[in-house]
Design a protein around this nucleic acid. Structure first.
Lengths: 245, 245
DNA sequence: ACCTGAACACCGTTCAAGT
DNA sequence: ACCTGAACACCGTTCAAGT
């Protein structure tokens, strides 16, 4: 029994090593250059051993995506747990999302890849379930903030829309904006210079439109933004400035 | 001169033939199965000839994407040109977008692929420019409807947000929702059963929040929706019912 | 029992050889 | 001048042969 569990730990450690190597390779050679050969070589195992851990390449990518989801969950948890009003905490989550994408552009691109039905259905069931539950954790973190706003009386949802549905639409907006922003389409030519600023302004207007109190004419959300930048996520922002990949 | 122009026409016709074959193959073998070998075989030309038309595989996919953008532009033009109020016409455009995605799921997936910076930068400059101008046409169609609303006095934009920026955010929302919807993530488990209905309801609330007149408490937009389904896009919807791929 | 790496099928791309 | 398809390098995946 003891031997078996030690063996299990070793296998888990090797899986982590493989994922570490894959993550590093992603940064060095990009998504296209990441091949099973290179992963095997970097991890100093044979390809057959890699395939004992991951059913196929997509499954390996799913492993990376799962890690990213957990990183994202940590950032979201920090944002959602701040001693601020629900609307400020939602702003903090949106900020954390943009921050995550800027900190980990390749990991975000990989998460986008995994949001393709054809890719996803090739992953192992174990990894797919794990990803699903990680995604649910992330979503629930946001949903809870909206629920807090409702129970505090800050937000009255319009009839026919639930907290979960609102969160889905907010997610779609931010995910869509991030996807388009990373597409290389020259939006500046269309009159959209700074996408992050545009999105933040738009979300202010949308939440004001939902009459989510305190509305932005009664509260200085720009000050919250500065607080997030200068204190809450200061360390992460510094990492961005020093290493602009 | 005459001979040269005839030759040019023949080359253009062959390019269309190649794209026809590629589009058909996309439906038959999917994105993964679409190889340059298969395209060459289906078009009954050698691979070398295919490469005379398209610099690389990504360039061929860009050719398909360009066609899809033109199809989308046609649908949007019809929606934007309806003899209805600006807000109804925006609803019609949103409907057309959802319709396009349901009619051409594989083409939409291909357009998503082309919205990746790494893929896009491999395409030929000619195709990239053509895609860009096609995208601009699509975007401008929507922007014009918003401009009409502003000049009619139906919509007063909040300070600090332009028509173009609003359109970008609306696009991000619908694009993001469509991407997530086609990801295979089981949103029903999170409490979002029907994504299309959710999005429509949310957009009603958002536009009401912007006080875009007539607001939905003064006007029956569900009736507009029925009108679109039963008359304007009736033929397309029938195609969907008869051939549910 | 576990790991290896040669072998296989396939793919994108090129280019010398044909017509 | 234009087209062809063999050849090349690479990739994901498998599995017989080792230890």
């Amino acid at each position: 029994m003891n031997i078996a569990s030690r063996k299990q730990r070793e296998i888990a450690a090797r899986e982590e090593l493989i994922l570490d190597c894959a993550a590093r390779l992603l940064g060095e050679v990009g998504h296209q250059g990441l091949s099973m050969d290179r992963v095997a070589e970097a991890a100093e195992y044979s390809k057959g051993t890699i395939y004992q851990h991951f059913d196929c390449k997509e499954d390996l990518l799913a492993g990376l995506c799962l890690r990213s989801s957990r990183d994202l969950y940590e950032l979201f948890s920090r944002a959602a747990g701040l001693p601020l009003s629900p609307r400020e905490r939602l702003l903090a989550i949106a900020f954390a999302y943009g921050l995550f994408i800027r900190l980990h552009p390749l990991e975000f691109a990989n998460m986008q890849t995994l949001k393709s039905a054809t890719v996803r259905e090739k992953t192992s069931e174990a990894n797919r379930c794990a990803m699903q539950s990680a995604e649910a954790q992330v979503l629930n973190t946001v949903t809870q903030v909206v629920r807090d706003a409702v129970s505090d009386g800050d937000l009255v949802l319009p009839p026919g829309i639930t907290c979960e549905e609102l969160v889905f639409c907010l997610w779609a907006t931010h995910y869509g904006a991030a996807s388009l922003a990373s597409s290389g389409i020259p939006f500046a030519d269309y009159g959209v210079g700074n996408i992050a600023d545009t999105l933040r302004k738009y979300m202010d207007d949308v939440l004001d439109g939902f009459n989510w109190r305190p509305t932005s004419d009664k509260f200085d959300y720009a000050a919250t933004q500065r607080h997030l930048e200068e204190h809450v996520f200061h360390a992460e922002l510094r990492r961005l400035d020093t290493a602009p990949s």
